Computed example of a mutant assay.
Amino acid sequence: MSTIYPLQDLNITNGWTVERNVFYDIGPDSNVSEDDKFINIYCQQDMLAMKKGQILLDLGWYGGEDLNNKNAGYCIYLVRGDCWDEGELLEKFRSKNKQSIIDKINELILAVDNNIYDNSRGRLVYEHNESTGIYVGDSYSYSVLSSK
């Protein structure tokens, strides 16, 4: 039976609606059972989903439990639209390091709160239809702000 862990502390400000949160205060390097890591981290492509206006912040774990797999790790998508795989990609960030993920989430919350992305056009993303934009699964990071 899996232990119930507290949710990860984040600096979520007013105006954000949390649609899903199973981003627990454990990470790949935590001193917990491998079964608990598997259930609470490695099988969670939908850890955190939160919206503010038309901006969606989505966090998941991708690539399985083999930490030697270069594709395994947390992935954050910041998208304008209703779904991370059919919107306008503003930011994508991947890391195995949980503190880096926490810091990036807090940074993105602040950036959205300060309207940093209001005048930026992101890249259209596709997960299912290759003719509509970029495939989001093939890069480790992207920022509309650094592409200007």
Rank of each mutant, 00 (worst) to 15 (best):
L48H: 03
N71F: 11
D25L: 08
E107A: 08
D46I: 03
L89C: 13
N40Q: 13
G137A: 12
D85C: 10
Y126V: 01
E107L: 12
K52A: 08
G122T: 02
N14V: 08
L145V: 12
S141C: 12
S2F: 04
Q54H: 14
L124W: 02
I12N: 00
I55F: 15
V112Q: 11
V136W: 05
Y74E: 05
I41Y: 10
L110C: 09
V22I: 15
S143Y: 00
P6A: 00
A111P: 01
Y117P: 00
L124H: 04
N14Q: 15
F93V: 02
D82I: 07
N11I: 06
K148A: 14
S33H: 10
L110G: 04
Q44A: 10
S143P: 06
Y126G: 05
G27W: 09
D85S: 09
L108E: 14
Y126L: 03
M1F: 12
S131V: 07
R20Y: 02
V79Q: 02
M50Y: 04
R121Q: 14
F23W: 09
G60C: 10
V112A: 06
W84R: 08
I12Y: 00
K92H: 05
H128W: 05
Y77F: 15
D138F: 11
I102R: 09
Y126Q: 14
V144M: 06
G81C: 12
S143D: 02
W61D: 01
R94F: 07
W84F: 13
D35V: 15
F38E: 14
K104H: 09
M47N: 09
Q45E: 14
G122E: 02
L110H: 10
Q44H: 04
N14K: 15
D66W: 03
L57P: 05
K52G: 02
I105A: 10
V125M: 01
E127I: 08
N97F: 09
G73P: 08
Y135I: 06
D138R: 09
I12D: 00
V79D: 02
G73D: 08
N106E: 01
I109F: 08
I39G: 03
Q54R: 14
V79C: 08
T13L: 06
Q8V: 03
E19G: 04
Q8T: 12
L56R: 09
N14H: 07
N68S: 15
E107F: 08
G137I: 04
D113M: 08
S146F: 11
W84A: 00
I39H: 13
I76G: 06
E34P: 03
T132P: 02
L7A: 06
E91P: 02
I109H: 05
D36Y: 13
V144F: 04
P6T: 03
